[in-house]
């Protein structure tokens, strides 16, 4: 099978994730969309590993997972703090830092 298909799938997932970030307002859903984009990138890494026949792509995907975990922890903590102070999980609410 043409290995490009994996990459195209990754691209589609990435695009859907980006679209979710753009249109959803619930901070948690936005966050999950970001996770989706990271997973798409992971898929591309693993596919690249498959194409080249080396394991380096898989290692990169592994590191992405680690970083994603760290990001999730901090991001969710921020969401909790915002929710605690503003009683809202909408990312449009937290817009004081502007002109």
């Amino acid at each position: 099978m043409n290995p490009n298909n994996y990459l195209v799938l990754a691209g589609i997932l990435f695009t859907i994730g980006a679209f979710g970030v753009l249109v959803r307002r619930n901070a948690i859903i936005v966050f999950m969309s970001v996770e989706m984009m990271l997973n798409a990138a992971n898929l591309a890494f693993v596919a690249a590993s498959h194409i080249t026949g080396t394991l380096d792509g898989q290692v990169a995907a592994f590191f992405v997972m680690v970083v994603a975990a760290a990001e999730v922890v901090v991001g969710l903590a921020i969401i909790v703090v915002i929710f605690r102070t503003r009683r809202s999980a909408s990312i449009d609410e937290a817009s004081l830092l502007k002109y």
Binding site: A18, V21, L22, V23, R25, V30, I91, D92, A94, S95, L96, L97, K98, Y99
Partner: peptide
Amino acid sequence: LRRTQNGLVRSYALTMV
């Protein structure tokens, strides 16, 4: 120009995309 700095994260994300 500074009106573009509207504080909405999604607008920034749109710009990035």
